[in-house]
Amino acid sequence: MIALLIRDLRLAIRAGGGFGLGLAFFLIVIVLVPFGVGPERAVLTRIAPGMLWVAALLAALLSLDRIFALDHEDGSLALLATAPLPLEGVVLVKAAAHWLTTGLPLTLAAPVLGILLNLSPEATPWLLASLGLGTPALSMIGAFGAALTVGLRRGGLLLSLLVLPLYVPTLIFGAEAVRRGAEGLTALPSLALVGGVTAGCFALLPFAAAAALRVNLR
């Protein structure tokens, strides 16, 4: 499993795009927000937690279709399916690799982009914590969506349609944690719920995703 993780990370770095594209997209969306809603600092402070979460979510969405599609095209997926690694483990590793190449950089970049949106300083630790806890769930749900659409020629758009409604709970709890943190309320319950959603996703979705992959390999 570690070999697969290392390979996927190496591929993501060598192919470029992996890290860079998602981050650049995140930056651009955040830069566009003030152009859309106006430069008033109070307004930006109010919407910053939600905008940062929505933008991070969309940035994570960009690279989802590559989680399995490339391995399916060149036959690696069929070969992995006959390897001693259980397919559930493959899914888990793929989701982890996706998180390390998109979710983690997005989390680390978010406080800097928070400055652009005049995010209140008290909210920054909560932003880091909620994105850090929540983005793994985005990757895992995304891996499930990617497993469903892996055999389709134009699965990208469909993947977004399938995955976005599944992102709703994570987004609600995650953004809520940051908003409460910004207002000085207790944000821990929201944060715990984000963690709960993530833990639940990692416990259940690898099985669903592996089942979908087996159907698609048939």
Binding site: F144, G151, L162, P165, L166, V168, L193, L204, A208, A211
Partner: peptide, 28 residues
């Protein structure tokens, strides 16, 4: 048959998330 299998899996997972979304929305 592939469509039947995959949509069924989606329906199961979607149901869990639909319930979750419902409680998340109440919380929100």
């Amino acid at each position: 048959d592939t469509a039947a299998d995959l949509t069924s899996v989606l329906c199961l997972v979607g149901s869990v998330f639909a319930v979750l979304s419902r409680y998340a929305a109440i919380f929100w």
